[in-house]
Amino acid sequence: MPIWEIVDRRWKLQLHSPLQAAAAFLNPSIFYNPNFKIDLRMRNGFQDTMIKMATTNQDKIEITKEHPIYINAQGALGTEFAIMGRTLNSPGDWWAGYGYEIPTLQRVAIKILSQPCSSHWCRWNWSTFESVHTKKRNRAELEKFNDLLFAHCNLWLQAITQSHDGKCKPVIYDEIDVSSEWPTEMEPFDPSLG
């Protein structure tokens, strides 16, 4: 039981974020499930995430217009294939295939639903962020800070690639086919390398 309590405690910390609420809201297999009930925390999380992800006022206007189309499953979202695909396809694939009539919400949904599930990869990024963004450097220009963080992350990824003796294949995001299957690991994960 103590182990399950630790697991539950960690899950609760991760599952109650605005991004998690937006992911559940935009996941068609969850949202369109007849047993699914939208609560206030989920609505607020979705709204908070949309405000952060909509970079322009025009995007905010478009998301506001497109939101009811998704909620009511209108147009391509309500076709027989889209309804079957809610549970058969991955959420990102579903949005890529059927969300074309609401392109702004489609773009945001694919970004959110294509995030990795583990927070492991974020941990080193935040520790770098915290070490650079101290009180001594709080006046540094944002662009210089972003460049420094970008260089640090790329050097870290390069070190990982070299430690695997070139067995890692670089990810080229422009070549990723959103409609293809989710990538899988070629070899078992070794936590000591993490």
Rank of each mutant, 00 (worst) to 15 (best):
G166L: 01
G97C: 08
T79S: 13
W156R: 00
S180Q: 10
Q20A: 15
Y70Q: 05
N35R: 09
Y32I: 04
W121C: 12
P183F: 04
N33E: 12
S29C: 09
R41H: 10
K136P: 00
L105S: 00
D177W: 02
S29G: 11
W95M: 03
N125H: 08
V171Y: 03
H164T: 04
R10K: 14
I51R: 15
K65P: 01
F150Y: 14
L149W: 00
R123E: 12
K169Y: 00
M1N: 09
I112N: 00
L88T: 14
T128I: 06
T134K: 09
K136Q: 13
R137H: 09
L142P: 00
L26C: 02
K52I: 09
E5K: 05
W124E: 13
K111V: 08
I83E: 07
G97Y: 02
Q47I: 08
D8V: 01
L40P: 00
V132W: 07
A22Q: 02
G78E: 11
T184S: 11
G92F: 01
K135V: 09
Y173V: 08
F129Q: 09
L77Q: 05
Q158N: 08
C117A: 15
S127I: 11
P68N: 04
E185S: 08
K12A: 15
I69M: 06
A23N: 02
P116E: 14
I38V: 15
Q158F: 03
P18Y: 09
D177I: 06
Y32M: 05
E62I: 07
W126E: 10
D48T: 13
V132Q: 10
T56D: 12
D190M: 05
I160S: 03
T161E: 06
G99I: 10
Y32V: 03
R10G: 08
L157V: 06
H152S: 10
E185T: 08
W121E: 12
L40A: 10
K169H: 01
R123P: 00
K135W: 04
T134N: 07
I30L: 12
I71D: 00
S180L: 07
A140L: 15
S163H: 02
T87G: 05
N35V: 06
K136H: 10
L193F: 02
P2K: 11
I3Y: 02
N27R: 04
N138I: 10
I63D: 00
E130K: 13
D190P: 01
S114Y: 05
F31K: 03
R139M: 11
G45K: 01
K37Y: 04
A96D: 07
S90G: 08
N44R: 14
I30D: 03
D93T: 12
H67E: 11
G78N: 11
F189Y: 14
T49V: 05
R41K: 13
F129V: 15
I63F: 01
N146G: 05
M1T: 12
D190S: 07
E175N: 15
